[in-house]
Structure formats: C-alpha cells, structure tokens
Design a protein around this nucleic acid. Structure first.
Length: 579
RNA sequence: GCCCCCGUAGCUCAACUGGAUAGAGCACCGGAUUUCUAAUCCGGUGGUUGCAGGUUCAAGUCCUGCCGGGGGUACCA
C-alpha cells in the first residue's frame, strides 16, 4: 500500500470520529494531493475546504482538528496546517530511506503502477502508406506512439503495438503508375501534357497519367531504375505493368519503412496487412452487417451508411458507385477485428488530417454493437503538426518539389535520442516546433543532454568514488553503489531527491490517464534539474570524507540514477554512463 | 455556414483535471570553476493568463458570448 493511501485512510477515520462524516463521498475527493511545492512536504490535503460548507466552520479550524487527529500515523513525521486550510503531511526520514531501498529492490520496475490491471490495449501508430519514405509527421507519431505504449505498459496494461499496412487500393495503384511513368521516361518515352477540364494528363507510349496523382521524389526514379534493370524494355508491353510496379514498389518502400523505424528504436508486435484483411472477407461482412440491420442505403449509385444517427455529422459512403470501397470501409472492418482479437482499449494515433474520420469510426463501431465508452474504448489521438525549424527559421516542406525532410535524414542529423525526446516533449495535441539546431546543440538549452548529463554525472560520482577508494567495489551492483546507509543521515537535499523520484509513479499514472507521454518528458526534466541543483549545492563534492553522510548521499543519488533510467526508458531515450 | 483544437513573460512551453505567491527554458543583465564532466549552478529584469460576463469559499483551469490563429467539413487515404 502506498503511504498516501494510509494517510488518506487516517483522514477518513478522523473525519468519521470527529464529525461522523464519510469522506468516501466523491464530493470530498481527493483527500490527498501532491503538494504544489516540495517545501510543503510529501502530501497535502485540501479536504478542509470541501468540508467547510457541511460543517459550517472555517477551513482553517477544520484543518487544525484534522492535523491533530492524524498525528501518529505510520511514516508521518508531522502534519501541519498551512495557508487558508491545507493540512501538509511530512514523511519521516525512515520512510525516505525505505523508498531508496524500494528503488534498489524494484530496479527497472520502480515507478510502475498497477493502475491498468492487466487490461489489454492495442496501440496502432505511424501506419504510413508504403508509397514513400517516412517524413517528420510520421516521426512524431512513431515516437509518441512507441513511448505511449511503453508508458501504458509501465502503468500496468498489457500492450500490443501494431502497424497497419495500407498495401492495397488507390494509393498503391498511384505508386505503380508513378514508377511506370518514370520507367517509361527512362527508356526514352517523351510525354505530351494534355489539359482536360481541370486536370492535366501526361500521355505517351500508349499510357496516360493523371499528373496530380503522380508521386514524385527521387525514390520513385530509383524504383523505376530497378524495374528497368529487372525487365529491360519489356515492362510496358505487360498488361499488368502498373500492378507489377505497385507491388514491387510497396515491398521496397515497406522494407525501408521497417528499417527506419527499427533504427528509430520503434518495434511492433504486428504488421497488419490491409490486403489480407480484404482477402479474409471481413470487409464484406461489415457491409453485410450494416445492410442486414437496415443501416445502409443506396444513393446516386453508391452505398451509404447511416452514421449520422450515431453521432457523425453526415452519412458516409462505404461503397463507391464503381463498386470499390472507400478508405473507411476496410478501416472499420479492421477496427472491429481489433476488438474481436480481445483488446479492451483500442488506441490510434492519426495525423490531424484524419480529424473528420474520428466521428465516423466511432459511429461505425457503435453500429456494430461494440460497446464503445462502457467496457470498451476507442481512442483516436490526433498527433498535431510538427513545424521543422533550423536555427529559428522554418524549413519549408513541399511534397511536390520533394524537398521535405525525411525521418531518416532527421535521425542522421540529430540522433535518435534527441529526435525522440523532441517529438515527445510537447503535448501530443499541441503543435510542435522542432528546431534542428537546438536538438543538435550539446548545451544546456537542449533538454536531452541536460537529462543524460545528470545521469552520466551520477555514474561519474560512483566511478570517482571507486578511484578514490571511498567506495567499496564489492558494494557496487549494476554500475551503482548500493551499500548500507543510515536514513538518519539523509539531509534535506537528499530527501528532496528521493521525493522527486517518487513522482515517477504519479507521472506514469497521469500520462496513462491522459494518454500523453509528454508528462514523462516533463518529469525527466524536473528530476534532472533537481539533481543538477543538488550536485551544485555540495560544490561538486558529493563524496564527502564523512562516511555516514557520504553513504546517505550516494544512496539518494543511486535512487535518482535508477529513476532517470526508468523514465528515459519509457521515452525510448538512452541513458549513457558518460557523455 | 457547421464541427474540433489552441490563445499564459519578447520567444518556446508548464501549471499534476477547481486550490497555497501563475512557474521553467531561451533571450537580456549580473555573479559562481584548485571539480566527481561548467554540457552545470545562483541572482535579476520580464504577467490585467485574448476580451466580456457567469458558476464557486476558491477560476489560467468549468459555463456562455465575442475577438484572433490552426485544422477539418470527398464516391482521396
């Protein structure tokens, strides 16, 4: 049991015996909260404010009575009234000593929470079409998605990570056409540009291409070159030339996407193929289901479904008048399958352009009798745009001119750690300014190095201690001293560090609740800062000659080191022993 | 038109779901190194939280209406 629960129980007992009030009533919650400032101790209660009306007494007087009544609770050094009616709880030194022991015992599990109760969650993220290399927007989705999955795992959920491969449909066909177009160029075809209505077409060698649908970029030409090597001049004569180009193109590009994500330390449990989904008949079944329930109808030769009745602003097309599906039909079937595979919470990370799709998907799932919002949840997170800057100036990205920065290029330039940290640094739902120059800078305004430096410093202390003979190598485990210490020698500074470490669990729970790993980057930054200040306070001499103090300090530092490692691990950022 | 998101220091952002004096970093000014990594730390300047109402003991946070920015509103994905 966490100490806060014990103390909250003490408050409830006090209220019952003093005034016969049941604090379990939601009106009085929360009984304890983290203090806004470390100087207020380890937990604060604002419950006196909430009791004031019922008891018809000023909050301050209620707080006085409560503070008196809770004296003597376990691990409680003292409870004191502050402000207009807060009761601040301060833990004993022994408690903080035990926290250090707990960090040592739990090691890479310290900070985990049982909040998720082992419930199964699927996080689908990135899911870029295999029609080009990953770019910056995908990078943010992958970094956030991967960290969110780590975070939920840390918060006690059973998490699977999935990439949905859009390996069939119109975009793959467009890719095939683009490759064929470049291929034809490479074997000497010249195209005539014809304007028909609003659109421009490229005509030559018996083919015609709608110009606005052609992918550009060097990778298309590279794939065309591969086709030429493979088929010589004979490809154009094949009746399924577009399909061949599309198939080979998507295979190559998907391979590249996998490789880039792997290098970005993003792993998936499953790569789910849309093509296989369609072959399985699940898409037809969804359409049949809607029809059988009278939820679908025909209009203008297309099949609509009545999503409007289920919260969507409009009814939407499921089957186009040419008989093919819109993108949402297989997508709904896919999400139905997610729930059928046993996931209770299904989380999708989408780009902001999918905004309108959220209501449609929710409606579609409700229409399938999936109890969204009760025992099951569908959460679409719209990962907001990321503006790329270079020394304060915006890097303009134009897909047309193929001048956009790819994720690969970004990783090569700033490194995986900085890229991941920066992508996660801001709230997922907020726009993000990513300054390449700042991310590369190895100075104090780069929070990645700030945190890694704090970790490396602690490792340095341990190493120095051994070199100076102040640390017994036999007491070093997993790269950190963890010998015996006396909690009575923990200074206020040490305690502040230990207190900060305990915040990881709270950050994990808040992050899991809000589905936002940015809360963890915040935590990392605060804990690093707490350590840097602590370090400076001892004038760079944590290794004091006074052995009992030295042991206490090393113990506190060891807790910070482990906690930082755990938090950075959630973010997928490395914790090097030296920089 | 309608639907979402966002307006907090000059800039980029916090504020732990309504609580204590709205905090950090950058920038600017001034300090601290015989070090265990100065890739650090300390101090200072800087605010009518877009505007106006409302609810509350208590509002940056919740409600309403304006103003401003972004996104969406396909038989594209």
């Amino acid at each position: 049991m966490e100490v806060e629960e014990t103390w909250a129980g003490g408050l409830a007992d006090a209220a019952k015996s003093l005034w016969s009030v049941d604090l379990a009533d939601p009106r009085f919650q929360p009984l304890l909260e983290p203090p806004s400032d470390p100087k207020f101790g380890d937990a604060a209660s604002g419950v006196a404010f909430r009791l004031a009306k019922d008891l018809r007494k000023p909050p301050r007087a209620i707080a006085e009575e409560l503070a008196k009544a809770v004296a003597g609770l376990p691990y409680l050094e003292r409870a004191e009234v502050a402000g207009a009616g807060y009761v601040n709880f301060r833990a004993t030194r022994a408690f903080h000593g035990e926290t250090i022991l707990r960090v040592r015992a739990e090691r890479e599990k310290f900070g985990r929470s049982p909040a998720g109760g082992g419930r199964r969650v699927l996080v689908e993220h990135c899911s870029a079409n295999p029609t080009g290399p990953l770019h910056i927007a995908h990078g943010r989705q992958a970094a956030v998605g991967d960290a969110l999955a780590n975070l939920l795992d840390f918060a006690g959920y059973r998490v699977d990570r999935e990439f949905y491969v859009n390996d069939t449909g119109g975009q793959i066909e467009n890719l095939g056409r683009a490759i064929l177009w470049r291929y034809l160029e490479s074997i000497g075809t010249t195209f005539a540009r014809e304007t028909r209505g609003q659109d421009a077409w490229l005509v030559g060698h018996g083919f015609e291409f709608l110009e606005k649908n052609l992918y550009r970029g060097d990778y298309v030409s590279e794939l065309a070159a591969e086709m030429k090597q493979r088929y010589g001049d004979g490809l154009a004569a094949k009746p399924d030339a577009v399909a061949i180009c599309g198939r080979i193109g998507k295979e190559r590009l998907l391979e590249e996407i996998r490789k880039t994500l792997e290098d970005f330390r993003v792993r998936y449990d499953t790569w789910y193929s849309q093509e296989e989904l369609e072959k399985s008949g699940r898409v037809e079944k969804v359409v049949e289901f809607y029809r059988s329930r009278g939820l679908a109808y025909e209009k203008d030769g297309a099949q609509f479904f009545k999503s409007k009745e289920f919260g969507d602003p409009e009814d939407r097309v499921l089957v186009k008048s040419d008989g093919s599906y819109t993108y949402r039909t297989p997508d709904i079937a896919y999400h139905r399958d997610k729930f059928e595979r046993g996931f209770e919470t299904v989380i999708d990370l989408w780009g902001p352009d999918h905004h309108a799709h959220v209501a449609t998907m929710e409606a579609g799932l409700r229409m399938l009798d999936i109890p969204i919002g009760t025992t099951r949840a569908f959460r679409a997170l719209l990962v907001q745009h990321c503006r790329l800057l270079r020394g304060g100036a915006e890097v303009k990205m134009s897909k047309r001119a193929a001048s956009y920065v790819t994720l690969r290029e970004l990783i090569d330039e700033v490194g995986v750690d900085a890229a991941r940290y920066f992508f996660i640094m801001r709230k997922t739902t907020s726009h993000l300014d990513f300054d390449i120059e700042v991310a590369k800078r190895q100075t104090l305004d780069n929070p990645v190095y700030y945190a890694q430096y704090a970790h490396a410093r602690i490792c340095g202390i341990c190493e120095q201690g051994r070199a100076k003979g102040m640390i017994d190598p036999a007491e070093v485990r997993n790269g950190m001293w963890d010998g015996p210490f006396d909690a009575a020698h923990l200074s206020d500074g040490d305690i502040e560090l230990v207190r900060a470490c305990r915040g990881l669990r709270r950050a994990v729970e808040a992050g899991a609740r809000d589905l936002d790993p940015a809360i963890v980057t915040d935590f990392v930054y605060r804990l690093s800062g707490a350590f840097q200040r602590y370090y400076q306070k001892f004038e760079n001499t944590v290794l004091t000659p006074e052995e009992p103090l030295r042991r206490a300090r090393l113990a506190a530092c060891g807790a910070v080191r482990q906690t930082l490692r755990n938090a950075l691990a959630i973010l997928g950022v490395s914790a090097p022993e030296r920089l």
